[in-house]
Simulated scan of single mutants.
Amino acid sequence: MPYGIAFTVGSRRLMTVERDVATLAFSLKDIFCERLPPVPALTSVEGLRVLSAPARAEKRLREAMPGFLVGARDTFDRSFIDMAGTYDAYLARFSGKTRSTLRRKRRKFEEAAGGRLDLREYRSPDELERFAQLALPLSRRTYQARLLDAGLPEDDHFRAAMYQLAEVDCLRAFLLFLQGEPVAYLYLPVEGETLIYAHLGYDPHHAGLSPGTVLQLAALERLFAEERFRYFDFTEGDGAHKALFRTGSIRCASFLLLRPSVVNRALLGSLALFDQSVSLAKSLATRTGAEALARRMLRA
Protein backbone atom coordinates (compact mmCIF):
# COMPACT_ATOMS: atom_id res chain seq x y z
CA MET A 1 0.00 0.00 0.00
CA PRO A 2 1.21 3.58 -0.59
CA TYR A 3 3.13 5.12 2.29
CA GLY A 4 4.08 8.79 2.39
CA ILE A 5 7.73 9.41 3.26
CA ALA A 6 7.56 12.85 4.83
CA PHE A 7 10.04 15.70 4.77
CA THR A 8 9.16 17.64 7.91
CA VAL A 9 10.39 20.62 9.88
CA GLY A 10 9.16 20.45 13.46
CA SER A 11 5.48 19.53 13.22
CA ARG A 12 5.06 20.89 9.67
CA ARG A 13 5.11 18.49 6.74
CA LEU A 14 6.71 20.19 3.71
CA MET A 15 6.64 17.37 1.17
CA THR A 16 5.67 13.73 0.89
CA VAL A 17 7.00 11.08 -1.48
CA GLU A 18 4.96 7.89 -1.75
CA ARG A 19 6.35 4.37 -2.02
CA ASP A 20 4.38 1.13 -2.12
CA VAL A 21 5.39 -0.88 0.93
CA ALA A 22 4.03 -3.65 3.12
CA THR A 23 3.72 -3.03 6.85
CA LEU A 24 5.12 -5.07 9.71
CA ALA A 25 3.86 -3.76 13.04
CA PHE A 26 4.94 -5.05 16.44
CA SER A 27 2.19 -5.24 19.03
CA LEU A 28 2.98 -4.71 22.68
CA LYS A 29 2.43 -8.44 23.22
CA ASP A 30 4.90 -9.23 20.41
CA ILE A 31 7.51 -7.15 22.21
CA PHE A 32 6.85 -8.66 25.64
CA CYS A 33 6.95 -12.21 24.20
CA GLU A 34 10.05 -11.41 22.10
CA ARG A 35 8.40 -12.75 18.95
CA LEU A 36 8.57 -11.58 15.34
CA PRO A 37 5.20 -11.01 13.62
CA PRO A 38 4.72 -12.81 10.27
CA VAL A 39 6.63 -10.93 7.56
CA PRO A 40 4.28 -10.12 4.64
CA ALA A 41 5.13 -11.04 1.06
CA LEU A 42 7.14 -8.36 -0.75
CA THR A 43 6.64 -9.54 -4.33
CA SER A 44 4.71 -6.48 -5.57
CA VAL A 45 6.03 -3.74 -3.28
CA GLU A 46 9.21 -1.70 -2.86
CA GLY A 47 9.91 -2.90 0.64
CA LEU A 48 8.77 -3.00 4.22
CA ARG A 49 7.61 -0.39 6.68
CA VAL A 50 8.53 -1.63 10.16
CA LEU A 51 6.74 -0.15 13.16
CA SER A 52 7.96 -0.27 16.77
CA ALA A 53 10.63 -2.94 16.50
CA PRO A 54 12.72 -3.55 19.62
CA ALA A 55 16.50 -3.69 19.08
CA ARG A 56 16.79 -7.48 18.96
CA ALA A 57 13.98 -7.83 16.42
CA GLU A 58 15.42 -5.04 14.26
CA LYS A 59 18.74 -6.90 14.11
CA ARG A 60 16.98 -10.10 13.04
CA LEU A 61 15.03 -8.32 10.30
CA ARG A 62 18.06 -6.57 8.87
CA GLU A 63 20.02 -9.83 8.81
CA ALA A 64 17.11 -11.59 7.08
CA MET A 65 16.90 -8.92 4.34
CA PRO A 66 20.51 -8.29 3.25
CA GLY A 67 20.96 -5.58 0.64
CA PHE A 68 17.76 -3.74 1.52
CA LEU A 69 18.22 -0.04 2.25
CA VAL A 70 17.44 1.18 5.75
CA GLY A 71 16.06 4.70 6.07
CA ALA A 72 13.54 7.06 7.64
CA ARG A 73 14.56 5.55 10.97
CA ASP A 74 13.01 6.97 14.11
CA THR A 75 13.92 5.74 17.60
CA PHE A 76 11.67 6.34 20.58
CA ASP A 77 10.44 4.98 23.89
CA ARG A 78 7.26 3.03 23.28
CA SER A 79 5.17 3.96 26.28
CA PHE A 80 2.42 1.96 27.94
CA ILE A 81 0.26 1.87 31.05
CA ASP A 82 0.10 -1.34 33.07
CA MET A 83 -3.55 -1.47 34.13
CA ALA A 84 -3.27 -4.54 36.38
CA GLY A 85 -4.13 -2.53 39.49
CA THR A 86 -6.78 0.04 40.34
CA TYR A 87 -7.16 3.61 39.16
CA ASP A 88 -6.24 4.87 42.63
CA ALA A 89 -3.09 2.74 42.58
CA TYR A 90 -2.25 4.17 39.17
CA LEU A 91 -2.66 7.73 40.45
CA ALA A 92 -0.45 6.93 43.43
CA ARG A 93 2.47 6.37 41.03
CA PHE A 94 2.54 10.08 40.23
CA SER A 95 4.45 12.46 42.43
CA GLY A 96 2.46 14.65 44.79
CA LYS A 97 3.28 17.67 42.65
CA THR A 98 2.04 15.97 39.46
CA ARG A 99 -1.19 14.81 41.10
CA SER A 100 -1.79 18.35 42.29
CA THR A 101 -1.20 19.70 38.79
CA LEU A 102 -3.60 17.18 37.24
CA ARG A 103 -6.30 17.99 39.80
CA ARG A 104 -5.82 21.70 39.15
CA LYS A 105 -6.17 21.25 35.38
CA ARG A 106 -9.36 19.25 35.78
CA ARG A 107 -10.78 21.80 38.23
CA LYS A 108 -9.97 24.65 35.85
CA PHE A 109 -11.72 22.85 32.99
CA GLU A 110 -14.76 22.06 35.15
CA GLU A 111 -15.04 25.70 36.17
CA ALA A 112 -14.98 26.78 32.51
CA ALA A 113 -17.61 24.10 31.73
CA GLY A 114 -20.01 25.31 34.40
CA GLY A 115 -19.00 23.15 37.33
CA ARG A 116 -18.93 19.58 36.01
CA LEU A 117 -16.97 17.46 33.58
CA ASP A 118 -19.00 16.54 30.49
CA LEU A 119 -17.28 13.37 29.25
CA ARG A 120 -19.21 11.10 26.89
CA GLU A 121 -18.30 7.54 25.91
CA TYR A 122 -19.20 5.80 22.64
CA ARG A 123 -19.10 2.01 22.15
CA SER A 124 -22.02 0.65 20.07
CA PRO A 125 -22.34 1.12 16.28
CA ASP A 126 -25.15 3.64 16.77
CA GLU A 127 -23.11 5.55 19.34
CA LEU A 128 -20.08 5.54 17.04
CA GLU A 129 -22.15 7.10 14.27
CA ARG A 130 -22.85 10.02 16.58
CA PHE A 131 -19.20 10.12 17.63
CA ALA A 132 -18.13 10.46 13.98
CA GLN A 133 -20.62 13.26 13.38
CA LEU A 134 -19.19 15.24 16.28
CA ALA A 135 -15.52 14.26 16.22
CA LEU A 136 -14.71 14.65 12.52
CA PRO A 137 -15.42 18.41 12.35
CA LEU A 138 -13.38 18.81 15.55
CA SER A 139 -10.54 16.73 14.12
CA ARG A 140 -10.25 19.01 11.10
CA ARG A 141 -9.44 21.91 13.42
CA THR A 142 -6.67 20.13 15.31
CA TYR A 143 -2.98 20.65 14.62
CA GLN A 144 -2.69 16.87 14.12
CA ALA A 145 -4.88 17.18 11.02
CA ARG A 146 -3.69 20.57 9.77
CA LEU A 147 0.07 20.04 10.11
CA LEU A 148 0.64 16.28 10.39
CA ASP A 149 -2.20 14.82 8.32
CA ALA A 150 -2.89 12.68 11.40
CA GLY A 151 -6.44 13.58 12.34
CA LEU A 152 -9.31 11.11 12.44
CA PRO A 153 -9.49 9.39 9.02
CA GLU A 154 -12.61 10.20 7.02
CA ASP A 155 -12.51 7.45 4.39
CA ASP A 156 -15.05 4.64 4.02
CA HIS A 157 -12.50 2.00 5.04
CA PHE A 158 -11.97 3.63 8.44
CA ARG A 159 -15.71 4.04 8.96
CA ALA A 160 -16.35 0.37 8.12
CA ALA A 161 -13.55 -0.78 10.44
CA MET A 162 -14.94 1.41 13.22
CA TYR A 163 -18.37 -0.24 12.99
CA GLN A 164 -16.86 -3.74 12.81
CA LEU A 165 -14.89 -3.10 16.00
CA ALA A 166 -17.99 -1.72 17.72
CA GLU A 167 -20.04 -4.80 16.75
CA VAL A 168 -17.70 -7.02 18.80
CA ASP A 169 -17.18 -4.52 21.64
CA CYS A 170 -13.58 -3.79 20.63
CA LEU A 171 -13.64 -0.01 20.57
CA ARG A 172 -13.76 2.78 23.12
CA ALA A 173 -14.21 6.38 21.99
CA PHE A 174 -14.60 9.51 24.11
CA LEU A 175 -15.52 13.13 23.61
CA LEU A 176 -14.97 15.92 26.11
CA PHE A 177 -17.46 18.77 25.87
CA LEU A 178 -17.21 22.42 26.89
CA GLN A 179 -20.47 24.35 27.10
CA GLY A 180 -22.15 21.74 24.92
CA GLU A 181 -19.45 21.69 22.21
CA PRO A 182 -16.89 18.89 21.73
CA VAL A 183 -13.33 20.13 22.31
CA ALA A 184 -11.29 16.90 22.55
CA TYR A 185 -11.59 13.31 21.33
CA LEU A 186 -9.90 10.00 22.12
CA TYR A 187 -10.24 6.91 19.90
CA LEU A 188 -9.11 3.54 21.27
CA PRO A 189 -9.42 0.23 19.38
CA VAL A 190 -9.10 -2.87 21.57
CA GLU A 191 -6.82 -5.83 20.80
CA GLY A 192 -7.36 -8.59 23.33
CA GLU A 193 -6.63 -7.01 26.70
CA THR A 194 -4.86 -4.00 25.22
CA LEU A 195 -6.26 -0.54 24.46
CA ILE A 196 -4.57 1.03 21.43
CA TYR A 197 -3.93 4.77 21.54
CA ALA A 198 -4.95 5.46 17.95
CA HIS A 199 -6.18 9.07 17.86
CA LEU A 200 -6.23 11.99 20.28
CA GLY A 201 -6.95 15.57 19.31
CA TYR A 202 -8.27 18.79 20.75
CA ASP A 203 -9.46 22.20 19.64
CA PRO A 204 -6.38 24.48 19.68
CA HIS A 205 -8.56 27.44 20.67
CA HIS A 206 -9.02 25.81 24.08
CA ALA A 207 -5.43 24.67 24.58
CA GLY A 208 -5.17 26.81 27.73
CA LEU A 209 -7.65 24.48 29.43
CA SER A 210 -5.51 21.37 28.71
CA PRO A 211 -8.45 19.42 27.20
CA GLY A 212 -6.26 16.54 25.97
CA THR A 213 -4.80 15.96 29.42
CA VAL A 214 -8.17 16.29 31.16
CA LEU A 215 -9.78 13.87 28.69
CA GLN A 216 -6.98 11.31 28.98
CA LEU A 217 -7.15 11.08 32.74
CA ALA A 218 -10.96 11.06 32.91
CA ALA A 219 -11.13 8.32 30.27
CA LEU A 220 -8.56 6.24 32.14
CA GLU A 221 -10.68 6.41 35.27
CA ARG A 222 -13.58 4.81 33.39
CA LEU A 223 -11.38 2.26 31.65
CA PHE A 224 -9.78 1.11 34.90
CA ALA A 225 -13.28 0.69 36.34
CA GLU A 226 -14.16 -1.84 33.62
CA GLU A 227 -11.49 -4.22 34.98
CA ARG A 228 -11.17 -5.69 31.49
CA PHE A 229 -7.91 -4.24 30.19
CA ARG A 230 -4.33 -5.08 31.08
CA TYR A 231 -2.43 -2.53 29.01
CA PHE A 232 -2.92 0.88 27.47
CA ASP A 233 -0.53 1.00 24.50
CA PHE A 234 0.64 4.46 23.40
CA THR A 235 2.24 2.83 20.29
CA GLU A 236 5.12 4.42 18.41
CA GLY A 237 6.50 7.90 18.98
CA ASP A 238 7.65 10.05 21.84
CA GLY A 239 5.88 12.99 23.41
CA ALA A 240 5.31 14.78 26.69
CA HIS A 241 1.72 13.47 26.90
CA LYS A 242 2.85 9.84 26.68
CA ALA A 243 5.75 10.40 29.05
CA LEU A 244 3.39 11.90 31.62
CA PHE A 245 0.82 9.09 31.69
CA ARG A 246 2.94 5.99 31.08
CA THR A 247 3.97 3.48 33.74
CA GLY A 248 6.70 1.95 31.58
CA SER A 249 8.40 2.11 28.19
CA ILE A 250 10.49 0.02 25.78
CA ARG A 251 13.12 1.42 23.42
CA CYS A 252 11.95 0.78 19.85
CA ALA A 253 12.49 1.98 16.29
CA SER A 254 10.35 2.45 13.20
CA PHE A 255 12.04 2.45 9.81
CA LEU A 256 11.84 1.52 6.14
CA LEU A 257 13.55 -1.40 4.42
CA LEU A 258 13.54 -0.61 0.68
CA ARG A 259 14.88 -2.45 -2.35
CA PRO A 260 18.30 -1.11 -3.40
CA SER A 261 17.15 0.69 -6.57
CA VAL A 262 18.66 3.96 -7.79
CA VAL A 263 15.41 5.80 -7.04
CA ASN A 264 15.20 4.45 -3.49
CA ARG A 265 18.85 5.27 -2.81
CA ALA A 266 18.29 8.83 -3.98
CA LEU A 267 15.11 9.18 -1.95
CA LEU A 268 16.55 7.92 1.34
CA GLY A 269 19.78 9.83 0.77
CA SER A 270 17.84 13.06 0.20
CA LEU A 271 15.76 12.44 3.31
CA ALA A 272 18.86 11.84 5.43
CA LEU A 273 20.51 15.01 4.09
CA PHE A 274 17.32 17.02 4.66
CA ASP A 275 16.95 15.76 8.25
CA GLN A 276 20.61 16.54 8.93
CA SER A 277 20.15 20.08 7.59
CA VAL A 278 17.08 20.61 9.76
CA SER A 279 18.99 19.38 12.82
CA LEU A 280 21.88 21.76 12.10
CA ALA A 281 19.49 24.66 11.58
CA LYS A 282 17.75 23.87 14.86
CA SER A 283 21.09 23.81 16.70
CA LEU A 284 22.03 27.16 15.16
CA ALA A 285 18.65 28.67 16.11
CA THR A 286 19.09 27.46 19.68
CA ARG A 287 22.57 28.97 19.95
CA THR A 288 21.49 32.31 18.49
CA GLY A 289 18.26 32.59 20.47
CA ALA A 290 16.07 32.41 17.35
CA GLU A 291 14.36 29.11 18.22
CA ALA A 292 11.14 30.69 19.53
CA LEU A 293 10.84 32.86 16.40
CA ALA A 294 11.34 29.81 14.15
CA ARG A 295 8.61 27.89 15.98
CA ARG A 296 6.16 30.78 15.59
CA MET A 297 6.90 30.96 11.86
CA LEU A 298 6.31 27.22 11.44
CA ARG A 299 2.97 27.40 13.26
CA ALA A 300 1.76 30.31 11.15
Score class of each variant (00 low, 15 high):
T288F: 15
R230F: 01
L273H: 10
A243K: 09
S283D: 14
L256D: 13
R259Y: 00
G237D: 07
S254T: 07
A266E: 04
Q276T: 06
E236C: 04
F255Q: 06
L257H: 11
R230E: 12
Y231V: 04
E227G: 11
Y231C: 03
R251Q: 15
D233H: 07
G289C: 05
A266G: 15
L256S: 10
F234R: 11
V263N: 01
T288D: 13
K282R: 15
G237I: 04
E236A: 11
S279P: 10
V278S: 10
G239N: 08
F229E: 08
R259H: 03
G237S: 05
R251E: 14
A240K: 09
K242G: 07
I250C: 03
F274W: 12
A243H: 03
I250R: 13
F232T: 10
F245A: 03
Q276I: 00
H241D: 05
I250K: 08
A285S: 14
L273N: 08
Q276S: 14
A243T: 06
Q276E: 15
T286H: 13
R246S: 14
L273G: 10
E236S: 13
F274H: 04
D233K: 09
F224A: 11
R287V: 04
D238N: 15
E236R: 11
L271W: 01
G248I: 05
E226P: 12
T288K: 15
S270G: 14
A285G: 06
G289T: 03
S254N: 02
F255K: 00
